[in-house]
Structure formats: structure tokens, C-alpha cells
Amino acid sequence: MSEFVVASDLAIEYRTPRGAVRALDGADLRVAAGASMGLVGESGSGKTTLGMAMGRLLPSNARRVAGSLSVGSQSLFDLDDDGVASLRRRQLGFVFQNPMSALNPTARIGKQIGWALERKANQREIHERLQQVGLRDVPRVAHAYPHELSGGMAQRVVIAMAIARRPRLLVADEPTASLDASVRGQILELIKSLQREIGATLILLSHELSMVARTCDVVGVMYGGRVVEAGPASIVFNAPLHPYTQALLKAAPGAERPGERLTAIPGMPPVLIAASVGCSFAARCHLADETCRRTRPEVRHLPDRQVACHHIEAASPRGGAGALDPS
């Protein structure tokens, strides 16, 4: 199976007045075409940076300091501005967290769909697009301004705009974070079904394990700017190898037995100002030793997944109790 997205030892820094902050510290990722991958991690893990980097949508103070990223066999950081714009237009679609700020407040919805289609679209086609994302009373929606819609409806519009030109890659950054709990499931379902319909590759960024487990076939766990474990969701969630993944699963609500306590992970995620010496999880890992603190773990490509840890043999998969049912 061909790989559509390949990140290889990608490192990206942000220059701030107080010095550089390393958002990605050697991230490796391979996503097959047509797959649905969920990138999980706490805030600061680098998942947003990685997701945005796939469209080179990084702020002006971001610098790639190492590694490479290619989408559909085009190396992102080697493209010129026109090349990137062309890539975005033809192959990428993005869904962001807050639909209200993603839509232009002074233009009607129908007009914005027209922008997304990049050509003179007639009313019928615009209405079709809106119907495709499950909106009802389509003529009224097309004529409305963004502030007249609910959050859920607005997000559907954003999704419609993102898939308007049948992109090959769809990146959704916490698409349900600002929505009511009642509509979250629907939006996720919508994204999933549309992805299948147009045959795109989906990358879903989230800090919620349950959401990723429900929606995605493949999962990547990020910590400290690296992908510490990645593989098919059923395998990773049922038999996690990386201590961080295991800890995440134990700390996630959902499958605990009554009376059992959730185990929080002690400590705080790191803010890197340079390439990390050793493993960035060492400070919070119960298996950490001198090797972990001194040497960066290489990414190991096992038959069923990739892992970045010195101690995968020692860490026995403690699947059971925290496993989430990815059905």
C-alpha cells in the first residue's frame, strides 16, 4: 500500500521573544493512502504542529530545523509558494476547531461555499453540497451569515468547504472541541463517511482517546514532539508497548470498573527548547534508567507498529483494564 503522508525525523521550532520553542523534535510518521489516522496527545505534544505542517500552515515564526515531510510524494518544505498554494487547493482539506472563526463573518454561506469550489457554482450545486453534509432547510442556510447558525451547523459548513474539491488528504484538528456533546458524534460520523465517500486519507487530531478509537483505523501517540507509538488502533489500544501509551490508557475514563481509581500520570509534559537529550518521557516514566535519560530512543519499526522506546521488551502490554473498544 502506498504511503500518502510521510514525516521523517521532522523537527520544527517556533521563535519567540524569549527564545526558541521546539514543537516537533524528530517526528516520524507514515500514513497509508485512504487510511484514517488519529493523532493523540496532550496539548504541547506537537500534534497540531504536525497536522498544520502537512499544509505548511505554520505561523511566520516557525522554522523547520531538521527532517522532511511529504504529502502525496511532494516534499512540503521544498515547494515554492505557488506550489504550496496549488497543493492546498487541489489535494488538502482542513477542518479546524472553531467553526465560527473559520468562516468569514461578513459573507453569506452560499458565497463561501462558492469560494471553496473555486469556480462559478450555481445555486443547485451549492445546495447539493450543503445537503451532502446533512444540513436541512438548505436555502435558508445558504442565504444566512455565519453568526446566524449554530455551532454544529457551522462546522458542517466548514466540512463541506473542506471536501468541496475532493481533497486527497483531510486534516481535522479537534473538530468537535467547541461543539455541544450532543452533536459531537454526528460530526465525527459525518467526517468519517465523507472520507470514505471521496476516498481521502484522514488525519484526526485529538486529545480524546475514545474519539480516536471510535473513528480511526490507525492511531499515533505523540509526546514531547515525537510520535512515540503508532499502529493499527486495535493493536495499540489493546496491547500498548510504550509506557506513555499505557499510562494514557490507564488515565482515560471509560472502561474502568466501579470503584477503581483513574491513575493520573505524575508530572508535566516538557517544553523543549532544543533537541531533547534522551527520551523526553523519562522524567515521568516508571521504567526510566540512565540509558533513557542519556540516549534518544530510535524509532523501531516492528511488523505491527512503530515504537520509540528503549524498553519495549521489558514493558509487558497491560492491555486489559484500560483497553478501549475500538469498534
Binding site: S86, R88, R90, F94, F96, A102
Partner: peptide
């Protein structure tokens, strides 16, 4: 710096 510019850029608008 508002969100809809990011969205527009992500669509590849010139």
C-alpha cells in the same frame, strides 16, 4: 490573525 484567514490559506487562496 483571525481564523478565517487560516481557513482561506488552507484552501490555497492566492
Amino acid at each position: 490573525t483571525s481564523g478565517h484567514i487560516t481557513t482561506a490559506v488552507s484552501r490555497g487562496e492566492s
